[in-house]
């Protein structure tokens, strides 16, 4: 950071601490502690007691924060993604791999705003062979889809999606995947499901640069070595050669 930038920030007098103070969220207070604990705790993680202390631990990944979702939307995305790609004997599921962090970042990105898609009207109903004709932006469709997951769960089980058993969650998602659940606005629930599925798979297997695939465990599970520059020896080998994964970060400075 240049001196100039430092000064600008200094002049504004804007720090995280003062923001929290001004917004009435007291550090270490009950409300704040609860919110952060449940937000970053997830289902399978123990709430981090360090959350109460605002000093970040050394191992904290700054990318592990939200730029798009509300905490509720984040939790719901974690729960849904974890059914697409659950924890099993191979290793962690989408929740632990930070797929929902990945999804949050993607929906906040130009991709979430469909900037590289042809978005000119008119939007007619497509035949099966014509590809989707969806006017709703991905970021909006995803949020509508999340609301629809809760609404459908509530209608069927009188509970939110995240409160259902995993078996019930799978049944709800199956109804979305087959388009049996009601349309979301003008779009089949199947289209939302496909977006969720695609984003989850990307979130567990994209380079960790994007916020998911935590510690490259998505890659490790399938013995994928990530981004390496040369496999001349390995591809000739009759035996499988297991390599530790490397991310794009390993190419920085080369």
């Amino acid at each position: 950071m240049s001196n100039n930038e430092k000064n600008q920030n200094g002049n504004k007098g804007f720090t995280r601490r003062t923001f929290l103070k001004n917004s009435g969220m007291t550090v270490g207070g009950v409300v704040l502690g609860g919110a952060i604990g449940s937000l970053f705790g997830g289902k399978s993680e123990t709430p981090q007691s360090t959350s109460h202390n605002m000093a970040p631990a050394l191992s904290v990944n700054p990318s592990e924060a939200l730029m798009f979702f509300t905490p509720d939307q984040y939790r719901l995305t974690q729960a849904a993604a974890d059914r697409i790609y659950p924890t099993d004997e191979n290793g962690p599921g989408a929740m632990e791999l930070n797929a929902a962090i990945y999804i949050d970042h993607q929906l906040a990105s130009p991709w979430g705003f469909n900037v590289k898609e042809y978005m000119s009207a008119p939007f007619y109903k497509a035949e099966e062979t014509q590809g989707s004709q969806v006017r709703i932006l991905r970021k909006d469709l995803f949020l509508l889809g999340l609301s629809a997951l809760d609404a459908y769960s509530n209608n069927k089980y009188k509970m939110k999606f995240s409160e259902l058993t995993t078996e019930e969650q799978d049944l709800v998602l199956t109804d979305f995947s087959e388009g049996i659940a009601p349309d979301i606005s003008t779009v089949s629930s199947k289209i939302f499901f496909n977006l969720l599925r695609t984003l989850t798979i990307e979130g567990v297997y994209a380079d960790p640069l994007y916020g998911g695939n935590k510690d490259m465990i998505g890659w490790s599970m399938r013995k994928y070595p990530g981004s390496r520059m040369n496999y001349v020896e390995e591809i000739q080998d009759q035996k499988f050669v297991k390599l530790e994964p490397q991310g794009l970060n390993s190419h920085m400075g080369h």
């Binding site: 991709w111 898609e117 042809y118 007619y124 590809g131 004709q133 990307e202």
Partner: peptide, 29 residues
Amino acid sequence: HREELMQDLSKETITHRNNEKMRALPMRD
């Protein structure tokens, strides 16, 4: 998956139909 090297479809794409009886629709992504 984000087609970094490809044509920006927001500017230009093709429309497609399987036969003349159908209405051609744009390949949006």
